[in-house]
């Protein structure tokens, strides 16, 4: 099917009772925020700095509230259905990877509600960034994994591929706005998608990495790689597959709340014990953990690598710690 670009606003408006999130400027950078004016959407320029995981897994989320003297707690329940518009295929794939964790032994109730109540309308990535390497990680600029609808920008209109029942529901409400796509349109979209995939110049073969990592536990490469690390949270906070959180209480007068908030394994506090002992005392151990978690532990548990090749950590690392460089070092090390 096809959606003319000038009907995009109507398409979004036709979605009943759902909040539409899309990439919009917040301060100086793109992030997924509720769309009030479709004109503000910037789906075509670079991928959002903050990945759309922030919608289903907000950076700060109240879990429950309680009051001084009272014995009951009031659980916060996320409500409302959301549509995420303009999600890149890499970020959508990341969400299905993160699902593994939140729906593992027990379902995380907060994530469960937000995730099941959200539909992902993806936009094929036709102009990949310098540091994109999604094709190496099993995805691609038009990968459909995790998406409910995939749009491909044909210039004047979007080619719309409905991928799931959720996607179909979305289209039903806006049936009148859609037109039939010709085979020429489909052909054009395919060409564009293939051209984009060919543009991705950073490549790596990660298949051997999970097997090599355990043997490199004490390798000197970790010290070298982490030497320039500042220990900030950029690479993890902005990673679409990183999902760690911390829980804290906050009190204001007689009211309190327990909330969870993103945490990063690059912070020394992350593993700090109450005794003062820290099992990951330096940035060497923390860097090693970040790579091992993504490419070894996660593979052991869920048979998939926790990296989709979006390139954010490479783009934004202040000191140019480059995950592809690390992986190639891991690949080259003698075991």
């Amino acid at each position: 099917m096809k959606l003319s670009k000038d009907k995009l606003a109507d398409f979004l408006a036709a979605i009943p009772g759902k909040t539409v999130f899309g990439p919009q400027l917040s301060g100086e950078t793109l992030r997924f925020t509720p769309v009030t004016r479709p004109g503000n959407l910037c789906p075509t320029v670079n991928n959002a700095t903050v990945p759309p995981k922030s919608v289903v897994f907000p950076q700060t989320e109240t879990m429950f509230r309680f009051e001084q003297g009272a014995t009951d707690i009031r659980t916060a329940e996320p409500s409302g259905e959301t549509v995420l518009f303009g999600v890149r295929p890499c970020d959508a794939r990341a969400m299905s990877i993160v699902d593994n964790v939140f729906f593992w032994d027990v379902d995380d109730p907060y994530y469960l509600i937000r995730r099941t109540n959200s539909a992902l309308v993806g936009l094929a990535c036709l102009d990949p960034c310098v540091n994109c390497f999604c094709t190496s990680m099993g995805g691609g600029p038009a990968s459909t994994e995790g998406l409910d609808i995939l749009l491909t920008d044909l210039g004047e209109s979007y080619l719309l591929e409905v991928l799931t029942g959720k996607g179909e529901m979305l289209c039903q409400s806006a049936e009148k706005l859609l037109s039939q796509a010709s085979s020429a349109d489909k052909e054009a979209a395919k060409m564009l998608q293939e051209k984009a995939a060919a543009q991705i110049s950073r490549q790596i073969d990660p298949s051997g990495i999970p097997a090599r990592l355990p043997a490199l536990w004490e390798s000197p490469i970790w010290e070298k790689i982490s030497a320039s690390c500042l220990g900030c949270g950029i690479c993890t906070y902005l990673c679409p597959t990183c999902h760690c959180f911390d829980m804290q209480d906050e009190t204001e007068g007689e009211e309190s709340r327990r909330y969870r908030t993103w945490d990063s394994c690059m912070f020394s506090e992350y593993t700090l014990h109450a005794s003062g002992h820290n099992p990951r005392p330096t940035r060497r151990e923390r860097t090693r953990n970040r790579i091992n978690h993504k490419f070894s532990y996660f593979v052991d548990k869920f048979k998939v690598m926790a990296c989709v090749g979006c390139g954010r950590c490479i783009n934004l690392c202040p000191v140019n710690i480059d995950i592809l460089d690390i992986l190639s070092q891991v690949g080259e090390q003698a075991l």
Partner: peptide, 30 residues
């Protein structure tokens, strides 16, 4: 407000700062 609202608290500004070298930072205190 607009600028601060977009802060993700990654603390890179603090960590990169050559003058921020307290053994325990006020921002980390619980």
């Amino acid at each position: 407000r607009d600028k601060v609202n977009s802060c993700i608290r990654c603390y890179s500004c603090r960590n990169v700062c050559p003058m921020c070298y307290c053994a325990e930072c006020i921002l980390d205190k619980l």
